[in-house]
């Protein structure tokens, strides 16, 4: 009986972190799907996390309400960052965003009144798995709507070939600015989700490990459809626990090998809409119709 309870405890924690990491991965996907590789998600998460922690500490807000404030704060931070970053060439943008991760840490450590500084902050409220699930469902619905709208179509065009897209009247700046806003809002929510799941946050919560989780989940799950980052986040989150259970002696190596194998075999990720389209392409219905 105790064993079952132990197992459930570990299992539900994995689900909770899978849900949290889904927000982080979707934040990365939001900009990547518009052709921007950026680690700014880590900063947006920090902003959302500390804003949520402060709001909960001061007003005893329920987690989902705190998520809303975190999303807005992340969006505002993203607007400022986008204005600066979108002036840079793509590869410089990626580098600058890594620098921003380091700057975020320094700022967090040096503003103890806002963030608790080196001590970090306790978060007196814990978000439930159900609440996380609801928040992710709403977020996923937003991504679903975007994917099937003009924004989704033109952001795919901008990602594939920004100069061709621009000669079709698409402002790449505008598309990528919107992408940053979405990334900021979702990243902020992800940061708040992380804060209310861990119940303790510090400068180290929003640092390189989160950047790695973000990029690994997105690449693993696939960055060509919004469902990819969610799948990727769950696989990436479950991998350590699974490897611990299966190959406890070499779990770290095994985890790395599994990641590499998936990325080599499925370079476009676990979820790839192109596969579906290829199947549609080959269906006899389309092949036999004569040209008009």
């Amino acid at each position: 009986m105790e064993a079952i309870l132990d197992f459930w405890a570990a299992y539900s924690a994995t689900i909770a972190f899978g849900l949290v990491n889904s927000f982080i991965a979707l934040s990365c996907y939001a900009v990547l799907s518009a052709g921007v590789l950026s680690f700014t998600t880590v900063m947006f998460a920090a902003v959302g996390g500390f804003v949520a922690a402060q709001m909960i500490g001061m007003f005893a807000l329920p987690p989902l309400v705190a998520f809303l404030f975190a999303g807005v704060a992340g969006g505002v931070a993203a607007a400022v960052i986008a204005v600066i970053f979108l002036r840079l060439e793509t590869h410089w943008m990626a580098l600058a965003s890594l620098a921003l991760v380091l700057i975020t840490r320094v700022v967090v450590l040096n503003t103890p009144t806002l963030t608790g500084g080196v001590q970090g902050m306790l978060v007196p409220v814990r978000v439930s798995v159900l609440e996380l699930f609801l928040a992710l469902a709403v977020t996923a619905f937003v991504f679903y709507r975007m994917h099937n709208s003009w924004y989704g179509l033109v952001s795919r065009a901008v990602r594939e070939d920004p100069s061709v897209a621009s000669t079709m009247g698409i402002s790449t700046y505008r598309v990528q600015f919107i992408a940053f806003l979405i990334s900021g809002a979702v990243g902020g929510i992800g940061g708040a989700a992380l804060a209310t799941t861990l119940q303790f946050i510090s400068a180290d919560t929003y640092f390189l490990a989160l950047a790695f989780t973000m990029i690994a989940s997105t690449v693993l799950g696939g960055s060509f459809h919004w469902f990819g980052p969610i799948v990727g986040a769950f696989v990436f989150t479950a991998l350590p626990t699974t490897m611990q259970a299966v190959l406890p002696e070499i779990q770290d190596v095994a985890k790395g090998v599994v990641l590499l194998v998936i990325m080599i075999l499925l370079p476009r990720g676990l979820v790839d809409p192109r596969v579906l389209k290829l199947r549609l392409s080959r269906s006899p219905k389309t092949a036999e119709q004569p040209d008009a």
Partner: peptide
């Protein structure tokens, strides 16, 4: 002259 190829990649 590409009617019927709409869904083709």
């Amino acid at each position: 002259g590409m009617a019927g190829k709409a869904d083709v990649l």
